[in-house]
Simulated assay, not measured.
Amino acid sequence: MKARVNEGCISCGACVAVCPEVFRFDDDGIAEAYADVAPECESTAKDARDGCPVSVIDIEE
């Protein structure tokens, strides 16, 4: 699975806190998906997507 943080991220840090195995802040302080979603991280990656206050995270199978 692949995750993507689309334009509009407000840098709240929710995704980074929930799933640091997939999400981190880039050099500009914007969240990015830096790794593929491993099977053991699917649930937390989806929680990060669902908890994004501006709904800018996509996860593709």
Rank of each mutant, 00 (worst) to 15 (best):
V22P: 05
D47T: 10
D50R: 13
K46E: 05
D36Y: 09
T44Q: 11
R24D: 00
S55D: 09
E32H: 07
C52V: 03
P20F: 09
V54A: 05
V22Y: 01
F25Q: 01
A33F: 00
A48P: 01
G51K: 04
V56Y: 09
K46H: 10
Y34F: 15
P53C: 06
G29E: 00
T44N: 10
E21M: 11
V37T: 02
F23H: 04
V56G: 06
C52G: 02
P53Y: 01
A45V: 06
K46N: 11
E42P: 04
G29H: 06
D47S: 13
I30V: 15
V56Q: 03
E42A: 14
R24T: 00
D50I: 01
E42H: 12
F25K: 08
A38Y: 12
R49S: 07
S43W: 11
E40M: 13
A35N: 02
E42W: 12
A45T: 08
R49A: 00
I30L: 15
P20Q: 10
A48W: 08
S43A: 13
F23N: 08
D27V: 10
D28W: 13
A35I: 04
D27I: 12
V37P: 01
V37A: 03
F23D: 02
G29Y: 04
R49H: 03
V37Q: 01
C41W: 15
C52F: 02
G51F: 07
D28K: 14
D27S: 14
S43I: 09
G51L: 00
D36S: 15
D50Q: 09
F25S: 09
Y34S: 08
F25Y: 14
D28Q: 14
A35G: 08
D27N: 11
G29R: 09
V37F: 02
F25E: 05
E42K: 15
V22H: 03
I30S: 13
P53A: 02
P20E: 02
F25W: 04
P20H: 12
A33P: 04
C41H: 15
A31S: 15
E42L: 13
